[in-house]
Design a protein around this nucleic acid. Structure first.
Length: 336
DNA sequence: CTGGTCTCCTGATCGC
DNA sequence: TGCGATCAGGAGACCA
């Protein structure tokens, strides 16, 4: 599922196709995928211009898991959210006539909107960008302008600071606004934008923080560790092209390789990479949460060295006080 | 205001 | 081999 790293990678793979390109045509196949600001409700009376028709794209911007395509000066802005299964794919097309002439044998019923763009006006530079989202948790949110996007309470105004560059002080200040457990707090996009279920588990694991820990009980060094873990994990994931569980693809249709580096998410029942304790799973904040009950204890007491150490690289070796346990031979396959 | 639960969706997977 | 039940989860809606 697309979280910050996947959206950032998607942005980077879309930019070469979109920035500076003119939108020649927009084909909307499902009207209700265009939604009203701050809502999932379908927007009524959608105008092609609000879907960027005719615009020359100036840039793409991202905050957290949200992406936006910015039209020319003072032009429309289209907010995009991939939800669980959304993707944006680019396909080259030689000639528009050919594009128009090509009637696919059967149109993919999950493709909800298509943009035909041209980078230099020549037919050979045309491309088709498609928004596909089987589950339709994602959608398109038109905004009148950049200012509207940033100030509209249904737009990015409700999002917290971006997780990719979050510092310890800011993270602490934001999460102290809630009494929810750390896991739930991290998933709250209004507090910090961009952390989803996968990276919340990964960051808490890397920082050695129990998912049920209360923000008010964390010590300064833990905020430092957590902020560093969030940044480094996100960065590493972006460089790997994100995490593909099932649906995520970048603009070129490529899947992400970061899944291979997951140390907590999806590893319930498997051995902790640091101490070999069997990872546990629980539902916290309505989300499946995987953690190590040894590395992520609710309290580490006063022994500072007992905390797993965080390094700038990811994955990082365990450097706690106790030697990692040897993996016991298993007689049967472990399960949840 | 806050936090917990429900809901929207489809496809993959599982048990029988 | 087929099929119904179950699960996954981002985030707004809704309610106590």
């Amino acid at each position: 599922m697309p979280e910050l790293p996947e959206i950032e990678h998607l942005k980077r793979t879309l930019e070469p196709w979109l920035v500076g390109a003119q939108v020649l045509e927009v084909r909307l196949h499902r009207r209700d995928i265009v939604r009203r600001a701050g809502s999932r409700q379908a927007m009524r009376g959608v105008k092609p211009a609000s879907l960027l028709k005719g615009e020359t794209i100036e840039k793409l911007i991202r905050r957290g898991k949200s992406l936006a395509i910015v039209g020319g000066a003072g032009g429309a802005v289209l907010g995009l959210h991939m939800g669980m299964t959304g993707s944006m794919l680019v396909a080259e097309s030689q000639h528009r006539s050919e594009v128009r002439g090509q009637r696919p044998a059967r149109r993919d019923r999950h493709v909800h909107c298509e943009w035909i763009v041209s980078r230099d006006g020549s037919p050979s530079s045309e491309a088709i960008v498609t928004f596909r989202d089987p589950r339709r948790f994602g959608g398109l949110w038109p905004f009148a302008s950049l200012d509207d996007l940033y100030t509209n309470p249904g737009g990015w105004a409700r999002l917290g600071p971006d997780a990719l560059t979050i510092d310890a002080m800011t993270l602490r200040e934001r999460l102290l606004r809630t009494r929810q457990p750390m896991k739930a707090a991290l998933l709250n996009q209004a507090l910090v934008a961009g952390v989803g279920n996968i990276y919340a588990d990964e960051a808490l694991f890397a920082a050695g923080i129990h998912p049920l820990a209360t923000p008010r009980r964390l010590r300064d060094v833990q905020w430092q560790d957590l902020a560093a873990a969030i940044r480094s994990i996100m960065q590493a994931a972006i460089e790997s092209g994100g995490s593909t569980l099932r649906d995520y693809r970048d603009a070129g249709g490529r899947s992400g390789a970061f899944t291979l580096q997951h140390q907590a998410y999806g590893r319930s029942g498997e051995a902790c990479v640091r101490c070999s304790t069997t990872l546990r799973s629980a539902v916290i904040g309505q989300r499946t949460t995987v953690f190590c009950s040894y590395c992520q204890r609710r309290s580490f007491g006063k022994r500072e060295a007992a905390r797993p150490e965080i390094s700038a690289s990811y994955p990082q070796p365990f450097r706690g006080t106790r030697e990692p346990r040897l993996i016991e031979p298993v007689l049967s396959v472990t399960g949840d």
